[in-house]
Design a protein around this nucleic acid. Structure first.
Lengths: 320, 320
DNA sequence: TTGTATGCGTTATCAA
DNA sequence: TTGATAACGCATACAA
């Protein structure tokens, strides 16, 4: 691939002059300018981003650490981030932690090797102090998306609040026993349970950590006795599986049991019964997170932590 | 971030010696080796990948150009590629063309700027010769994944063959009219139609280019007259929407109409009725594509084009 | 307005 | 076994 030095030779000028032209510096004679531009175009010059990055300025790279891109929600997040970053001239290096804390740690090192200008992360554990440490070592700004992390700028949806909304909704719909099915102890559940307690149903809420489909069926069978059961799924995929399991158990929805998912995946409106869900403002989150990260990149130095909780929205459908 | 030169000073050796130690070159006195390693560890040294890449060796970056990562299938592909690439020490720069040919072109320039070692691409148009041109300019190897591209190493599933399998299946199931609903003229449809012709149903197959949900409903209403209708959806998302539209039209599935999707997305088995689909060996494709790309990276120079069509598999469920 | 010189952090070549 | 030195491609400071 052709370099500035080579163009300089071809155009009979010095390399810094080529640099000036290509960077739009106006202090160059028009004739030289044109000669250089023509030559660059002819040879389809592309700047060497590595050299540029090495030289000290920016790399225009953002590291994006996700938990699982095969989850439709995060895929949408990734897409929105990529779009937003590109608008501002950044490219994305992508990593999948697969909910593995070790990978998360390891990828952070990789990210440092490439001298990314900043990092967007979906932190696996919101509560842990790991990220505070990480961020210090990283010496580039980090913004948490989707969930908040201790000690990080965070653009996220208030999951506890969303959990509370779900609880309120299920109670209004007349459910009297409650079940949360999710991947792990989760602030959604905390908010869910808190709200149920406030409403006087604190002792009627159970929490199941999901492992596999048979386990879901078992949990449901155990929870279904008499009272109408309101089920809160940690995400739409669980919601889908729960609907399927209830069908198998011949439980009527939303009659004997109601189900509400999380993330409002595209599929949920097409299911039968269509799945109620909690919708997150993905595009807005991506926009805010990228924009905050760019700000931090362009204004280095200490800075007050951003805590920007957005609000989820209930999308009520047939399943509740 | 600490550099080799700084470590050199701290350890009272020369910078190349540090380089040797950190690269595992054995021609270094054990005591020096330990001193350097200790110092590197203490300061959490991470190599500057930009400098390394600039110097001439590899960048250990792969460009990944996708059409749309928010499609569950491609999200799975992206994940598998990332996993496979990481196993071999590569990181991923990700791009979403959003089925936009201009973006595709533009991203290729970005990829060149970062001097990636190679590119994995889901080409938007399989038939066009664009990629042949692109690959020449790129001067790094390119491998097409998922679809084959003219003039590129290609690891893909034979969509025409898969379309034929679908046709055969629908005919065996007793459907007598046929409809393909997909994003655009597609080799799936070509194979589907060819097989139907062979079986004597050539004049009973229609092709609908999908735009929005109302349009699907209209198309279905138009196609449902008397004979049982076998519907082939270009992907599972369309399949889902079609099932939903049929419910709305009160058409029984798989009785009056049968539906089979494409990609065998995770959700399809949980739908009601569960959705028949065509499953593609994603992990194997990713593994083969990455492995081919790495081979080409490690063995530069001209080389016979790889054409590695894998085979799809029908997953028959309730919807047919 | 243009060119010369220097440095970014590596690897590689060559001497010592 | 170790250390000087150059080179990769660019941006920047400075000189002309």
């Amino acid at each position: 691939m052709i370099t500035m030095t080579e163009i300089a030779k071809l155009a009979h000028v010095s390399q810094p002059t080529v640099s000036r032209v290509l960077n739009g510096n106006m202090n160059v004679a028009p004739e030289i300018r044109e000669r250089v531009l023509a030559c660059a175009k002819e040879h389809d010059y592309q700047i060497n981003a590595l050299a540029k990055g090495l030289q000290g300025s920016r790399t225009n790279l953002m590291g994006v650490l996700l938990t699982d891109i095969s989850n439709g929600f995060f895929a949408d997040v990734a897409k929105a981030i990529e779009t937003e970053a590109r608008k501002r001239g950044y490219s994305i290096i992508l990593f999948n932690s697969n909910y593995n804390t070790e990978s998360e740690r390891e990828y952070l090192d990789v990210v440092r090797r490439y001298r990314v200008d900043g990092v967007l992360a979906v932190p696996i554990r919101e509560t842990s102090m790991m990220w505070r440490e990480y961020a210090e070592k990283l010496d580039v700004p980090v913004v948490a998306v989707t969930r908040s992390a201790n000690g990080l700028d965070s653009v996220y949806v208030d999951h506890a609040e969303a959990g509370g909304m779900v609880a309120g909704h299920l109670v209004r719909r007349g459910y009297e026993n409650f079940l949360f099915i999710g991947k792990e102890y989760d602030s959604k559940y905390i908010g869910f349970h808190r709200k149920l307690s406030e409403l006087g149903y604190g002792d009627r809420a159970a929490n199941v950590v999901y492992q596999d489909s048979p386990q879901i069926t078992e949990a449901l069978r155990g929870a279904l006795h008499g009272r109408r059961l309101g089920i809160f799924a940690g995400n739409d995929i669980y919601g889908l599986r729960i609907l399927s399991a209830l069908r198998e158990l011949q439980v009527s929805v939303p009659g004997e049991a109601g189900v509400i998912g999380f993330d409002d995946t595209m599929m949920s409106r097409y299911l039968n019964p269509s799945l109620s869900s909690v919708s997150q403002p993905i595009a807005r989150m991506a926009q805010k997170a990228v924009s905050r990260l760019v700000y931090r990149i362009e204004h280095p130095g200490p800075c007050e932590l951003l805590d920007d909780p957005l609000h989820a929205e209930l999308v009520i459908r047939q399943s509740t």
